[in-house]
Amino acid sequence: MNWGAVKAIYRFEMARTGRTLMQSILAPVISTSLYFVVFGAAIGSRIPEMEGVDYGSFIVPGLIMLTLLMQSVMNASFGIYFPKFTGTIYELLSAPISFVEIVIGYVGAAATKSIILGLIILATSYLFVPVRIAHPVWMIAFLVLTAVTFSLLGFIIGIWADGFEKLQVVPLLIITPLTFLGGAFYSVNVLPPFWQVVTFFNPIVYLISGFRWSFYEVADVNVAISLGMTLAFLAACLAIIWWIFRTGYRLKN
């Protein structure tokens, strides 16, 4: 392993984040605040409690997940797509590094950034609603696992994409809807039985449920299942990465 190279890529990517720090942080903080105003104050005042938790507090884990998933996918996909687009990828391909170092560097940086953003949103939430974290260690574990998994997914998208549209399609048309339908703002139990069944095919339900459990100990599905699904998702992404590594898919002629 060429850890020096991993460090170089990681630093390079974090520096890129640093240059756009204000917009990286401001946008999610503002949109999260708006959610609190709209859902928490305006609508939430008519919904007294969800699963015994004050509605404003109830949506905090879902909001964090929303940003975490979007940011992980977008950061990682853009991070690896850009060198492909500009041609600077030649440098990665001719350096004494394998695909493993490239993945660790880019995915590590993307995950780091989205974890930082997740924590900033958590801090912002404290300004609006009471938040209680029952299992801090599990909370961090779900946060990190999800960030890494979706950064891997983003990396795969970045490799697959051959244009900026494809880069946008997956986050906008798949991740955002699945997150909204995945119980970010409600408990799955409030849905009619048929839609409850449909919902369980949405992988993001498991992430949000497990994450919310680490806050308020309320969950749509058993925590063990949530954790298992998250790990399964991680394994699937790693498998695809391995296949890209073996075949050189869309990296080398």
Partner: peptide, 29 residues
């Protein structure tokens, strides 16, 4: 091996110093 490619493929927003240091880092030096 060091390679100077035919096309002018460079980063845009990095400084000269940063991009050259990055290259060295990629080689684990």
């Amino acid at each position: 091996i060091g390679l100077v490619p035919q096309e002018l493929t460079t980063d845009a927003f990095e400084s000269v110093w940063a991009t050259v240091s990055f290259s060295r880092g990629l080689f684990g030096k």
